[in-house]
């Protein structure tokens, strides 16, 4: 796999504010890199620099081997970019805008028509092609913006919150579109939605206050969660002292109990340092003769890792940007059924 995006020690200052503080990463062909972080952490600023819109204060960026600062045009030819909020000319129709961008991208005649037809089908905007963009819904605008980004079938895609403002069906469509394209491209995408990282990303970076705090696969990120390898069990009979017995297993940090609506007693056994406790927990159940209804292991929660890693922002009051990213996360409780 070849490296298509290479960022070295990139930084950006706005006056006294440091938006991006010496970050380095690379994205190879076939990779989908998820860019996570609270609002104002520097995600969009980084993307604006990679795409040649903003000039960095320091550092180096290479896209497909072209230095973004010195060979801006060459780099930009290879990038498809969806800016934050998908800005589009409100007076134009999607049709007109596609033709304009296609011309700039060097697509003419039959090739242009083919490419436009292709992306129109991919993002499903055929029925609004002749409507002024200002009259379109947020979801349509976002999809038109996405179509512009993939119009010239670029090797590198930079997508700033590609699914923001889309309904769940549209989100799923955009994700499957990203997955389809993933094998031939290097994709950098930012998001607030943590489930998106699990769904499409092969790697994720959490960035906080302009610095990379975590870089790894979604699984590695989940492993950092306090709840990684938490054993969840449900008992249909619950004699007293279950919590105490579970707590006495070596490697257990804490145990939570919850009574379910069907009368079952649910327990969550949280391990110390992510230790795997399935074997010892099931042994404990057998020894005590508890009637087991359900047993599962949690992989850990991304939103928990996210909150843990970006906590610096919450505790200080002098930060300009609110941290509503964490509260808006939608990580589902991932479960893996394990035979008891």
């Amino acid at each position: 796999m070849d490296t298509l995006i290479e960022i070295t020690n990139l930084s950006k200052h706005f006056g006294s504010l440091t938006a991006v503080d010496g970050i380095s990463f690379s994205v190879r062909r076939g990779e989908v890199l998820g860019f996570l972080g609270p609002n104002g952490a520097g995600k969009s600023t980084t993307m604006k620099m990679v795409t040649g819109f903003l000039t960095p204060s320091g550092g180096e960026m290479k896209v497909c081997g072209h230095n973004v600062l010195e060979e801006t045009i060459q780099a930009q030819k290879r990038i498809g970019y969806l800016p934050e909020g998908a800005p589009l000319y409100p007076d134009m129709t999607p049709e007109g805008l596609f033709a304009f961008v296609a011309q700039i991208r060097g697509l003419y005649g039959a090739e242009q028509a083919d490419r436009i037809a292709d992306v129109v089908e991919k993002v499903h905007v055929a029925n609004v092609l002749r409507q002024p963009i200002e009259t379109l819904s947020k979801g349509y605008k976002r999809r038109v913006g996405l179509a512009l980004a993939i119009l010239h079938d670029p090797e590198v895609l930079v997508l700033d919150e590609p699914t923001d403002g889309l309904d769940p069906n549209q989100k799923a469509e955009v994700r499957s579109l990203i997955q389809q394209m993933a094998s031939e491209k290097a994709i950098l995408l930012s998001t607030h939605i943590l489930e998106e990282v699990e769904a499409v990303c092969t790697r994720a970076i959490i960035i906080d206050r302009g610095k990379i705090v975590v870089d790894g696969t979604p699984e590695e990120l989940e492993a950092r969660s306090r709840f990684h390898n938490t054993v969840r069990l449900s008992l249909s009979n619950a004699p007293g002292g279950v919590v105490e017995r579970l707590r006495s297993i070596t490697g257990v940090a804490s145990v939570e109990e919850k009574v379910h609506s069907n009368g079952n007693h649910g327990f969550r056994v949280i391990p110390k340092g992510g230790e795997n406790l399935v074997a010892s927990v099931s042994e404990c159940i057998r020894e005590n003769g508890w009637k087991l209804d359900e047993l599962s292991v949690e992989r850990g929660r991304l939103d928990d890792v996210f909150r843990m890693m970006t906590k610096s922002d919450v505790e200080t009051t002098d930060v300009v940007q609110p941290v509503n990213a964490a509260s808006g996360s939608q990580t589902s409780d991932e479960k893996e059924e394990v035979p008891a």
Binding site: P87, Y89, V101
Partner: peptide
């Protein structure tokens, strides 16, 4: 104001 300057200047134009 519209933010379209970002669209324009990330196209391969001088």
């Amino acid at each position: 104001k519209q933010g379209t300057i970002e669209l324009l200047f990330t196209l391969p134009i001088t």
